[in-house]
Each structure stands twice: as structure tokens, then as C-alpha cells.
Simulated assay, not measured.
Amino acid sequence: MKATRLAIPDVILFEPKVFGDDRGFFFESFNHAQFEEAIGRKVSFAQDNHSKSAKNVLRGLHYQIQQPQGKLVRVVAGEVFDVAVDIRKNSPTFGKWVGEILTAENKKQLWVPEGFAHGFVVLSDTAEFLYKTTDYYAPQHERCIIWNDTSLNIQWPIQGEPVLSAKDAQGTSLTRAEVF
């Protein structure tokens, strides 16, 4: 598995070796030892999640202020634009973001460490999104930064307004958010 550090070096893109022929394909989607070597520390995953969303659905930018979650994310059907925002106030990349296209075809995965807000928008008709988290979901600690915060200036590759949950539509700006 190839691991590439992005413009924010703590965020890592994983690309598996895919073996395919006329019967289909095979790839190793997760190897704990290789993953820990790539990120440079021990990690335990506590929970796996699976969501399905329609075109232009935007989920995020989510994080938990306590019980922070690192997330290893991938798409198994469709295509999304996935975003990680550094919200660690003492980080040299505080308030910066990186984004990647994740698809069922490219089989790429993104590691979004603790201390980051995370979100994605669906670019295909539908998408199924899988992610492992390093801690359990704790709704009392969940926070949301608004997707279109002008200080972040995330370049979402969508036309018009995205489809948001009521909770995500009420997100706050980075300047008013609780951060790490």
C-alpha cells in the first residue's frame, strides 16, 4: 500500500495495490502494521461506520471536541470530494484544508487524524462511504464548522447549494468554533 503525506503532512492518502483480471479484482483494504508504520504511531479503531448519500449531499465539517476521532475513510460505491481541516490551534497548518477525490474505482483512502474537522460532498448520483474511527461516537461532544466558512475558502467542486442536514446547516465559523 502506497502512503502519501498531503500538504498537511498529518493527513495521509493511502493507495492500495489492486490485482485485477477479467474475473474482477482483489486488494488488501487495511493492514494494521503498515497503517501504523505510515502514520508513525499506534492506533486502535473502536468503530466502523457506513453511510449512503445522494448527489450533492454534503456532510460536515464534523469533529468531536472530547473523545476526538481519527478517521480512515473510503468510498465503496460512487464518488466524493473528501476534506480535512486542521483545527489544532498550535499547528502551523491551523485553519488549512486538504481535499481528495475518493471513488469506488480509485480505491483510495484518507487518514484524517484527531484534531481535524472532516466532511465530504457526493459527486456521483449516490455514494457509499465507509470509515473507521479511533473513538466512539459521542453526540454530546460533536461539533460542526459550517461548510462554506469564508475563512477556510474550501473549493467544493459542486454547482449551486449542497443538500445539508439541519444540524450541518447550523454549523459555526472556525473563528467561533471550539478547537483543539
Score class of each variant (00 low, 15 high):
residue 109 Q to K: 13
residue 119 G to E: 02
residue 32 H to I: 10
residue 119 G to N: 04
residue 63 Y to A: 10
residue 133 T to Q: 03
residue 163 V to N: 08
residue 162 P to C: 05
residue 136 Y to I: 02
residue 60 G to V: 03
residue 106 N to R: 01
residue 38 A to V: 09
residue 78 G to E: 10
residue 178 E to W: 12
residue 145 I to Y: 06
residue 36 E to A: 03
residue 125 D to Y: 05
residue 53 S to D: 09
residue 109 Q to E: 14
residue 171 G to S: 05
residue 81 F to P: 03
residue 41 R to K: 15
residue 68 P to E: 11
residue 125 D to H: 12
residue 56 N to V: 03
residue 85 V to P: 01
residue 101 I to D: 02
residue 58 L to H: 03
residue 87 I to V: 01
residue 29 S to E: 13
residue 163 V to A: 11
residue 125 D to S: 14
residue 34 Q to M: 10
residue 95 G to H: 14
residue 88 R to I: 09
residue 53 S to Y: 02
residue 169 A to T: 06
residue 145 I to Q: 07
residue 161 E to M: 13
residue 135 D to E: 15
residue 129 F to N: 02
residue 170 Q to L: 14
residue 150 T to P: 10
residue 97 W to V: 12
residue 140 Q to K: 14
residue 178 E to Q: 15
residue 128 E to H: 11
residue 26 F to D: 09
residue 83 V to W: 03
residue 5 R to G: 03
residue 57 V to R: 04
residue 169 A to P: 07
residue 82 D to C: 10
residue 61 L to Q: 00
residue 142 E to R: 00
residue 15 E to Q: 14
residue 3 A to Q: 05
residue 132 K to Q: 15
residue 148 N to C: 02
residue 92 P to G: 11
residue 20 G to E: 15
residue 170 Q to V: 01
residue 72 L to H: 10
residue 132 K to V: 06
residue 110 L to D: 12
residue 174 L to T: 08
residue 127 A to Q: 00
residue 48 D to F: 05
residue 25 F to R: 00
residue 65 I to F: 14
residue 150 T to V: 07
residue 81 F to N: 12
residue 93 T to W: 07
residue 71 K to A: 04
residue 62 H to D: 08
residue 175 T to N: 12
residue 22 D to V: 08
residue 108 K to I: 05
residue 170 Q to F: 07
residue 9 P to W: 09
residue 96 K to R: 15
residue 24 G to T: 11
residue 90 N to Q: 15
residue 58 L to R: 06
residue 138 A to T: 14
residue 31 N to A: 13
residue 85 V to L: 11
residue 130 L to Q: 10
residue 143 R to P: 05
residue 89 K to I: 00
residue 147 W to E: 09
residue 161 E to V: 00
residue 28 E to D: 14
residue 143 R to Q: 15
residue 65 I to E: 05
residue 121 V to L: 07
residue 108 K to W: 06
